[in-house]
């Protein structure tokens, strides 16, 4: 069973570098545990420790190969070079959901807000950078074609680490495109009869004259 293997793993020591500092830690630790264990300074980007908050972004160097990932989901390896990345800067695309008055012009609005979305050059940088294995490129193609529900569904596991935004040479900001797609789908199309019925019942009971 995996638990016993993991216990045995934790007896072995591996050496790696984190933010340029050489550290020796037990195998089986995540990169976050290793950074804490070694007292690496300035590691402030740690959050949920279970891979859903997207904060602990790291760049991973294995020889000449460089990838990115989440430190709480990546285990230590001998010789790996780890650099904790700063948080993403503020998004360049701006909208407020209440700006949209109706759904008929949403396609035009989408391309105004995210003009780069139709310029994907299929470099796969976003797909390779995604720690959740999301088919980011396919999602962007769906969004550019106006298929917001399907595009949003592609991004269901997105943890907003914004690593794909960094990877995109066209500055598409795929994570924010994905979220836009999810949000407009709910905003315009989610009209559940059971909820609407209950809201109306509550409104009417408040209008009754004998209501306190």
């Amino acid at each position: 069973m995996s638990s016993t293997i993991t216990d045995a793993d934790r007896q072995q020591v591996v050496t790696l570098t984190i933010n340029g500092v050489t550290v020796s830690v037990n195998k089986g630790m995540t990169l976050v545990e290793a950074a804490w264990h070694a007292g690496i300074s300035r590691v402030t980007s740690v959050g949920c420790l279970e891979g859903v908050c997207g904060s602990c972004r790291v760049m991973l160097g294995r020889g000449k190969e460089v990838t990115v990932g989440l430190a709480c989901q990546t285990f230590v390896e001998a010789g790996i070079e780890v650099v904790f990345l700063p948080a993403a800067s503020a998004p360049r695309h701006h909208y407020e959901i209440d700006d949209f008055q109706d759904g008929w012009d949403i396609h035009a609005r989408f391309h105004e807000i995210f003009p780069e979305a139709s310029r994907c050059r299929h470099c796969h940088g976003c797909v390779r950078s995604c720690p959740k294995g999301i088919a980011v490129e396919d999602g962007i193609a769906l969004a550019a074609a106006g298929r917001y529900r399907d595009a949003g569904e592609t991004f269901i596991e997105c943890v907003m680490c914004e690593l794909c935004d960094v990877a995109c040479p066209e500055l598409i900001a795929p994570a924010h495109v994905g979220l836009f797609c999810r949000r407009v789908t709910a905003h315009f199309h989610l009209r559940p009869p059971n909820l609407i019925f209950r809201l109306e019942a509550i409104r009417q009971s408040r209008m009754e004259p004998d209501h306190e």
Binding site: R183, H187, P192, L199
Partner: peptide, 28 residues
């Protein structure tokens, strides 16, 4: 508890999705 239904409406307006039944009701 009294806020419950309106909280869902507020969240949906902001763009939050929930599971639905084939008839479109919110799944409970």
């Amino acid at each position: 508890a009294g806020d419950g239904p309106d909280v869902l409406r507020w969240l949906i307006n902001l763009g939050m999705q929930f599971e639905t039944t084939p008839g479109g009701d919110l799944q409970t």
